[in-house]
């Protein structure tokens, strides 16, 4: 069997404060190349913290991360600033709120993904290599943004289109791993399915390992191939979709409303 691309070992994440919050409690998980994993759970279960710990974005929220995270054999938590940037450039991250720069054109927003491959001076002057520009156009068309719109400001796009730009940005990174944190939570159900299909296709066509956080059980069962269930910061499920009984799973993960009422 091949080596895992991502290995999380005894991961505990604490948000300090007057009342410290333990968002993740001793989490262990291994992800293998090419997998399509859905992390399921209600809000507050620790899904976001898990993804944000993997590329250490959680440090922006002053989180204390304990344990070991190996990406491609390198311990992320021990990495220097420089190594961390190198690691991040190989992990595409998709945000719930898309996080595009509204004032910049669509094309530049996608090109931001290639910053790791462009020299510092060139990137500061905004002179991207022709090859990267080609790739950006290509990636945008691929996620469904036609060429005539590439010069528009990102502010003029709809939510679904902004998320497509977010995916194109991740693709420009030539990622080995895609982490998507509630990528469709702000979208209507139809657009949500369109965007989920893009993730599915990228995973199937290029074999890019993908981890998606979803709170919606319908989408979880429709797209997940392996499902990790989180509750109160602990993994309570980790099985391929075929081995999961949908009804007991929903009760365990989401709890049933009528039982509480």
């Amino acid at each position: 069997m091949t080596a895992p691309i991502l290995r999380v070992h005894n991961l505990t994440v604490i948000y300090p404060g007057v009342q410290p919050v333990k968002a993740l409690d001793n989490v262990n998980v291994e992800i293998y190349p090419g997998e399509f994993v859905v992390v399921a759970g209600v809000s507050g279960s620790g899904k976001s913290t898990l993804l944000r710990a993997i590329n250490r974005l959680a440090e922006n929220d002053h989180a204390q991360i304990h344990g070991e995270i190996y990406f491609d054999g390198v311990n992320v938590l021990k990495a220097s600033r420089r190594q961390l940037r190198e690691i991040r450039s190989r992990i595409g991250f998709i945000f719930q709120e898309y996080n595009v720069v509204e004032r910049l054109p669509v094309l530049t927003n996608a090109l931001v993904g290639s910053l790791g491959y462009v020299g510092l001076v060139r990137s500061l002057l905004g002179r991207f290599p022709k090859e990267q520009i080609e790739r950006a156009h290509h990636a945008l068309v691929r996620v469904g943004i036609p060429q005539p719109r590439h010069g528009d400001r990102a502010a003029r796009l709809s939510g679904g289109q902004k998320q497509r730009v977010g995916i194109a940005r991740a693709l420009l990174q030539k990622p080995k791993l895609i982490l998507a944190d509630e990528p469709v939570a702000s979208l209507d159900p139809i657009t949500a399915n369109v965007v989920m299909n893009i993730f599915k296709k990228i995973n199937e066509d290029e074999g890019i390992t993908t981890i998606v956080n979803l709170h919606d059980p319908v989408l979880t069962f429709k797209y997940g191939k392996r499902i990790i269930g989180l509750k109160h910061g602990r993994i309570i499920y980790d099985k391929p979709i075929t081995a999961i009984n949908r009804e007991t799973f929903e009760e365990d993960i989401y709890g049933t409303v009528d039982r509480e009422g």
Binding site: N55, L57, N60, L84, R85, E86, I87, R88, S89, R90, I91, G92, F93, F95, N99, V100, V101, V112, G113, L115, G116, G166, R169, A170, Q173
Partner: peptide, 8 residues
Amino acid sequence: EAVEAVGA
């Protein structure tokens, strides 16, 4: 955060 996440 998004630009940081690509390793910039």
